[in-house]
């Protein structure tokens, strides 16, 4: 799968409370959640984001609450992929389980840079800056979940 879009860049320790504040968790409706995605850290997020864009951040992205509403809100808002120097572990597994692509990379990315990710070959390209990096593949079991289309589909496929 190839993804292209521009980067919206944030800092370290972006927690799930700012990705989707608890005051909106009285619904599990993905579209409603997406409407408020990231608003406490960037009130213009919904305006700036075009479908297919990337979110790029520093270390420990998605720390804090286990709320799966966070990756769900990002995915439904149109984010194609989250790139971070590291991910908090619950966000990491939630993203894989629901089929939101994530890449661990320390690539130098500035707000607005045009990016391309090739998930099959494990390459990330910063078109704006002319840089390219490869990222390590997921472990075989996680690849099975991703290839199945998420954890529920992997269960249906008899993988657990």
């Amino acid at each position: 799968m190839k993804l292209t879009g521009k980067a919206l860049v944030y800092g370290d320790h972006v927690d799930t409370d700012v990705i989707i504040p608890a005051r909106y968790l009285n619904t599990a409706d993905a579209k409603e959640l997406a409407a408020h995605c990231m608003e406490d850290i960037d009130k213009d997020f919904a305006k700036k984001l075009k479908p297919g864009d990337f979110v790029a951040a520093g270390v420990n992205f998605g720390c804090g609450s286990s709320r799966e509403h966070a990756p769900l809100a990002l995915k439904t808002a149109g984010v194609s992929c989250v790139i971070a120097k590291s991910f908090a572990r619950i966000f990491y597994r939630n993203a894989i389980n629901i089929g939101l692509p994530i890449i661990v990379s320390g690539m130098d990315i500035k707000d607005g840079d045009q990016l391309e990710a090739d998930l099959d070959h494990g390459t990330l390209t910063n078109v704006t800056r002319g840089t390219k990096e490869s990222f390590p593949p997921f472990s075989p079991f996680l690849q099975t979940i991703i290839a199945s289309g998420g954890l529920v589909a992997a269960r249906e496929g008899g993988h657990l």
Partner: peptide
């Protein structure tokens, strides 16, 4: 340990 809702869904079934 904590995890997400989809993990909980599959764990409830499997």
């Amino acid at each position: 340990t904590g995890m997400g809702s989809t993990d909980a869904a599959v764990a409830m079934a499997s």
